[in-house]
Nucleic acid binder design. Sequence first.
DNA 1: GTAAATTGTACGCTAAAAGCGTACAATTTT
DNA 2: AAAATTGTACGCTTTTAGCGTACAATTTAC
Lengths: 96, 96
Amino acid sequence: MNDKQFNELLESVRDMGRHMRGEKVDGLRIREIPEPDVKAIREQTGLSQTRFAYLIGVKLKTLQNWEQRRVRPTGPARALLKIVEANPQALLVLHS
Amino acid sequence: MNDKQFNELLESVRDMGRHMRGEKVDGLRIREIPEPDVKAIREQTGLSQTRFAYLIGVKLKTLQNWEQRRVRPTGPARALLKIVEANPQALLVLHS
DNA sequence: GTAAATTGTACGCTAAAAGCGTACAATTTT
DNA sequence: AAAATTGTACGCTTTTAGCGTACAATTTAC
């Protein structure tokens, strides 16, 4: 990705920020990131628990705890899983 | 994003999985996701702590704890921040 | 320009997730 | 069929996520 593209992306995010500026954080526009079906998302990628866990930066046990619903992924983990669900290629960026 | 594009992305991730299949998880190929400079990444986006925090699915206090280096973001949070750093537009997907 | 609102720094505390150990069943590979 | 990998299950410890509070700095509104 070159600088021009990067700056265009930055600008679009800044636009988003400006757009949101007049609104309350606890208002309707920003909602909780919904709980993902972790197992389904992983299986979509065709990766084993072991590979998937380390790719997204958690220990195997943690991923298993998510899939077995013993504990629920935290906010940023849910955000990451949502990105991966929409665009599995995002994983490629993480361990370059 | 249409189904065709999505399936192409899936396939590329599966390739990655296949490529890694013969390798040890604790080997060289998969490393720890490095600690991000949270404040720098947020400032690149031009967003306030409040907006950025809720966009990535953490409370304001948590983001502040990261920026002030009181606690370090967990693995998936580091992964998410790395994606945002490389591609701020990824934030747009999270609260659609 | 000054008051008001927002944003950011700082830190003690509680609740919850991240991660570890262990055991064993199920599946896949050789 | 044996071996290796993958997945389920659960008790326990360490660390982070999130909350409360106070106040300084910056930005916005009057």
